[in-house]
Design a protein around this nucleic acid. Structure first.
Length: 492
RNA sequence: CGGGAUGUAGCGCAGCCCGGUAGCGCACACGUCUGGGGGGCGUGGGGUCGCAAGUUCAAAUCUUGUCAUCCCGACCA
């Protein structure tokens, strides 16, 4: 099996695909735009999911599950939301197949099994959830509702890419209902902080927190907050969003509550989500030409031990030492696998585990036993060093922490190095073509100008950073006055 | 949805122009020597050539249609 990875510098896009496929994260499937997430990739997702799930619960949320299908009449209730997603919806129109009378062994859609009302396969669940909340909420005492669901959604995208944009993807979507605007805004921002915390401290990916412009806002939201990450080609990737939905959905679904003074008020809403797209971000941000580089804190496997031996006698001696090391590592909460299969030679295993981004590799052979040492190799820098078997557990645990930190620092240094300021249109255009990354520039605040910039350069406003410094300036395109810089970039 | 490409063994590909016994590498099985960076040698198994029509004595190869996937663009998390 050829396992060469296309070099990043040669073809970034192909490099990414190779990493996903050859790193055993996912496969193409028989369905256009849909992927199979393989066990290794799913283990990664499970780790991410588990951490996030705990964070959600720690902030007072509960999990629930809502249907995959949304009756069309409910889906269209919130007009902007419906419009925004309409052109990428899969729709169920029939509920039965039958054998084709003209073609034995084949099935056709039974024309007599047409649904009275079409069912939309959810591209997002606000509609079905707010229709449900209507029945849950009468009084301020019923609020807030803090619910999250882990689910799959379908968006019939024209062009798909593994993890980054698939027709079906896994995600979580939080949907909360509040008595006051202030409370909903606080929730929106709180969840953005949770996402930023997770992405930075677990995925080792630095992000910029900000708010979207009207053009880039979620369909149906009053405000969309986001975290933006930078990939190794300098392009931006939206890593998570948290929406303040105002009373839009409450009004669309007539969800009112009696406040303390017995006044009927519409409920305030938020929604927030991250998806398997984060895996794409992870892959693109940290990996190299040898394969994946995974942050230890969410890697499916943190340590792999490879024995190097000749004959059963040596193997037995190595096994004995490895068992001790394994126990020590496991006691410290480190996940470790002993790759002692005799199917592949050590060199092959080294390459394979590098491909899959296992953070630490320990090699142990007969000559190491004599000196009571092992060879410890770290994936992020590919450095190898000998370490004493005594105290190996703590040594490796510390190394994992160091790798986690190093990966983050490296990504942050790259990111910071690729944020530039542009003060004129010429500078802006030149920067885009010569130095990919974020460009901090003045913008007059109008959707028209934003649109023109996008048309001419394909760069969009990724966000207006939170706590942005206010400074007087002139818009790079229109020359009109501006009060602050915003971040532009070409994006995924 | 526009443009480009590709469907032949589990994977990656050649063969097609010029129709005539379906091939190569990797993987797989067995044996053997090996083992500190993707091993060597030997033997062996595995394919209705995406699908459907057509032309022909004969189609992986020519014609028409069809389906699917990938890549690039516009749209989007």
């Amino acid at each position: 099996m050829s396992k060469e990875i296309t070099p990043r510098a040669q073809d970034y896009s192909q490099w990414y695909n190779d990493l996903v496929i050859k790193g055993s994260l996912a496969d193409y499937s028989a369905v256009r735009g849909c992927m199979v997430i393989k066990p290794y990739g799913f283990a990664l997702w499970e780790n991410m999911r588990d951490v996030l799930d705990k964070m959600f619960k720690d902030t007072g949320h509960q999990n629930a599950y809502f249907p995959l299908f949304i009756p069309k009449s409910l889906f269209e209730a919130e007009e902007k939301n419906a419009e925004g997603f309409a052109k990428e919806c899969a729709v169920v129109t029939h509920y039965r197949l039958k054998t084709d009378p003209n073609n034995k062994g084949k099935l056709i859609v039974d024309p007599e099994a047409k649904l009275e009302e079409e069912l939309v396969v959810r591209p997002t669940s606000e509609a079905i959830i707010w229709n449900t909340y209507k029945g849950w909420i009468q009084s301020y005492r019923d609020l807030p509702i803090l619910v999250n669901q882990w689910a799959n959604v379908v968006r019939w995208e024209m062009r798909t890419r593994l993890f980054l944009r698939t027709a079906e993807f896994l995600w979580q979507e939080g949907h909360t209902a509040h008595a006051t605007k202030e409370e909903a805004v606080i929730e929106t921002k709180k969840m953005l902080e949770v996402y930023a915390d997770f992405v930075e401290n677990w995925m080792a990916l630095p992000v910029i927190k900000g708010v979207k412009t009207a053009n880039e806002r979620f369909a149906g939201a009053e405000d969309t907050y986001c975290i933006e990450a930078m990939m190794q080609d300098g392009k931006a990737l939206q890593a998570g969003t948290s929406h303040f939905l105002g009373q839009n959905f409450a009004k669309a679904f007539d969800v009112k509550f009696s406040d303390k003074n017995n006044n009927l008020e519409y409920v305030w809403a938020t929604s927030w989500g991250v998806s398997t797209r984060l895996i794409g971000a992870l892959v693109m941000a940290h990996s190299d030409d040898q394969g994946l580089v995974l942050p230890p804190k969410i890697a499916p496997l943190q340590v792999v031990i490879v024995p190097i031996f000749k004959g059963d006698e040596q193997k037995a001696a190595i096994d004995a030492k490895v068992n001790v090391m394994m126990a020590e590592l496991k006691a410290l909460g480190v996940s470790v696998k002993y790759d002692d299969s005799d199917n592949a030679r050590p060199g092959w295993k080294f390459a394979e585990h590098e491909m899959k981004g296992v953070p630490v590799r320990i090699a142990i052979g007969a000559r190491d036993l004599e000196q009571n040492i092992v060879e410890v190799a770290r994936r992020d820098t590919k450095e190898k060093a000998n370490a004493s078997i005594d105290g190996i557990g703590l040594h490796v645990k510390n190394l994992l922490d160091e790798i986690q930190q190093n990966i983050f620092n490296r990504a942050k240094a790259f990111r910071d190095d690729h944020i530039s300021e542009a003060n004129t249109w010429e500078e802006f255009v030149q920067l885009l073509d010569t130095k990919a990354g974020f460009i901090s520039a003045h913008w007059d605040g109008t959707p028209e100008t934003e649109e023109k910039i996008k048309e001419q350069t394909k760069a969009t406003i990724r966000c207006i950073p939170l706590d942005n410094k206010q400074e007087a300036g002139t818009c790079i395109l229109s020359g009109n006055p501006s009060t602050q810089r915003v971040l532009f970039a070409r994006a995924y």
